[in-house]
Measured scan of single mutants.
Amino acid sequence: MAAGGDHGSPDSYRSPLASRYASPEMCFVFSDRYKFRTWRQLWLWLAEAEQTLGLPITDEQIQEMKSNLENIDFKMAAEEEKRLRHDVMAHVHTFGHCCPKAAGIIHLGATSCYVGDNTDLIILRNALDLLLPKLARVISRLADFAKERASLPTLGFTHFQPAQLTTVGKRCCLWIQDLCMDLQNLKRVRDDLRFRGVKGTTGTQASFLQLFEGDDHKVEQLDKMVTEKAGFKRAFIITGQTYTRKVDIEVLSVLASLGASVHKICTDIRLLANLKEMEEPFEKQQIGSSAMPYKRNPMRSERCCSLARHLMTLVMDPLQTASVQWFERTLDDSANRRICLAEAFLTADTILNTLQNISEGLVVYPKVIERRIRQELPFMATENIIMAMVKAGGSRQDCHEKIRVLSQQAASVVKQEGGDNDLIERIQVDAYFSPIHSQLDHLLDPSSFTGRASQQVQRFLEEEVYPLLKPYESVMKVKAELCL
């Protein structure tokens, strides 16, 4: 049975990233139509530049190519590739079939990587351009969430054990800070992308030097003109047959890092959902379990974690691919890159769409948070109580021993009897502590235990987050809708 299948058929496997999760716009960027249309555009740009620099290419040939950029006979191309065992030459023939007058000058002087690699770089750039505003929107939604809850005390956790208090907004800023680093890295790697350009079979530009009869300047002009037509500021000066596969490492490393950030955020949300302090959106008709109707599973956060793990592992592909590119190139890269580049971007696209949807509907339960604080705060307040007693004339050592005994009794009630923490009640009825009984409410005010959390939130948002989001103001209103 021949390899390949009808990918629109229910009898043929289709990647869930495309069929179930990723956005239509990201799927289109990695589609065959987008790819092969870009090949034709690159052939047109090459012909236009070659004509401008004096090669015998007519206006009629150029116009014929322009008129057929979208006229792609995919069936013919597939048949040609089956016959020739070469995808680029299959599309040269297919393009030439609908451009008979231009057929002889299509791909003039070029090698397969002229269309293959340059198209990949265009796709990487455009895919990054799709991700950047999506990530900015996630940051914006979380920034709104953090600002609104900047002063809401909550129990902090280290080692997932109760620690000092923080605020809900401050905790959210930990998430935002990681995503801001990801946004900066995505922008950097996007701006650092260079075009492969017009380089020939081993990167020496020998074929173009021959076409222009040894004119170095025209060869350099050709490279520059096509690079500018493709919208790049610069091209690699040095290439082998391909652009260095280190570029793929750079791009997928940034995406993998984004995956790590999203995994951490969504894990926190899942843990908070278990504590009943916070939940992701839950639709009115949504079913959490087929057997347990009360369940409210954090399905979206779980999906993000599941896909983020996949995204983090994909960076190993370009690392290994770059390491086995012998001399000017081997074909070890080809099949692998067809999979890992598309999957990385479709996965990143999915987790950003999902995280935006989550961040637009996060639900906080202040009463649950308050109750958990009441359970733990008495123990945390013991040092403040000791200091207040010393100020009232008591002995630190005597007070410490009193607190120690009462704390152990209260802990026994919590752990052995399943009761509430009654340390404060014990202190309130103990005559030894009568000098500070009137101060206990103040000493137990949760806001006095959150330090500068709310001020940190305000400063972080104003100095770091809002300036970073400013270039994306025009796209901030787009909502994230999930079908599944």
Results as ranks from 00 to 15, higher is better:
residue 264 K to S: 05
residue 41 Q to L: 11
residue 112 S to K: 00
residue 307 L to N: 15
residue 157 F to A: 11
residue 437 H to M: 06
residue 221 Q to P: 00
residue 99 C to R: 01
residue 17 L to S: 13
residue 310 H to S: 09
residue 474 S to R: 14
residue 309 R to T: 09
residue 367 K to T: 04
residue 153 P to C: 12
residue 379 F to C: 03
residue 154 T to S: 12
residue 419 G to S: 10
residue 166 T to R: 03
residue 7 H to M: 15
residue 230 A to R: 05
residue 210 Q to Y: 05
residue 47 A to L: 04
residue 189 V to E: 08
residue 399 C to P: 03
residue 359 S to G: 12
residue 433 F to Q: 03
residue 393 G to S: 07
residue 413 V to P: 01
residue 401 E to C: 06
residue 8 G to K: 15
residue 375 Q to F: 09
residue 463 E to A: 10
residue 223 D to L: 06
residue 43 W to K: 00
residue 463 E to R: 10
residue 439 Q to N: 11
residue 414 V to L: 06
residue 433 F to W: 06
residue 357 N to G: 10
residue 100 P to W: 09
residue 387 M to C: 10
residue 10 P to N: 15
residue 68 N to E: 13
residue 354 T to K: 03
residue 164 Q to V: 07
residue 55 L to C: 11
residue 179 L to M: 15
residue 248 D to G: 03
residue 472 Y to I: 13
residue 416 Q to E: 09
residue 48 E to M: 09
residue 202 T to I: 07
residue 443 L to Q: 04
residue 104 G to A: 13
residue 49 A to S: 12
residue 320 Q to K: 06
residue 91 H to L: 09
residue 275 L to Q: 03
residue 417 E to R: 09
residue 346 L to Q: 09
residue 101 K to A: 11
residue 235 A to D: 07
residue 66 K to D: 10
residue 7 H to P: 11
residue 410 A to F: 08
residue 406 L to C: 09
residue 311 L to K: 01
residue 195 F to M: 14
residue 380 M to P: 03
residue 190 R to I: 09
residue 264 K to I: 02
residue 470 K to E: 13
residue 384 N to H: 14
residue 245 R to I: 02
residue 452 R to N: 10
residue 367 K to I: 04
residue 188 R to G: 06
residue 318 P to C: 08
residue 308 A to L: 06
residue 367 K to V: 02
residue 452 R to W: 06
residue 452 R to A: 12
residue 456 Q to L: 12
residue 2 A to L: 13
residue 90 A to R: 02
residue 335 A to V: 07
residue 226 V to I: 09
residue 266 C to R: 08
residue 72 I to S: 07
residue 363 V to C: 08
residue 183 L to D: 02
residue 231 G to Y: 07
residue 302 E to M: 08
residue 174 L to T: 08
residue 260 A to W: 02
residue 326 W to S: 04
residue 10 P to D: 13
residue 316 M to Y: 04
residue 201 T to P: 08
residue 462 E to M: 13
residue 451 G to T: 00
residue 222 L to N: 01
residue 178 D to E: 14
residue 71 N to D: 12
residue 220 E to G: 08
residue 357 N to C: 13
residue 431 A to G: 13
residue 202 T to V: 07
residue 151 S to W: 09
residue 407 S to C: 10
residue 121 L to P: 03
residue 422 D to A: 06
residue 174 L to Y: 07
residue 62 I to K: 06
residue 240 G to A: 10
residue 127 A to M: 00
residue 272 L to W: 11
residue 428 Q to H: 14
residue 250 E to P: 07
residue 376 E to V: 06
residue 245 R to E: 03
residue 206 A to D: 00
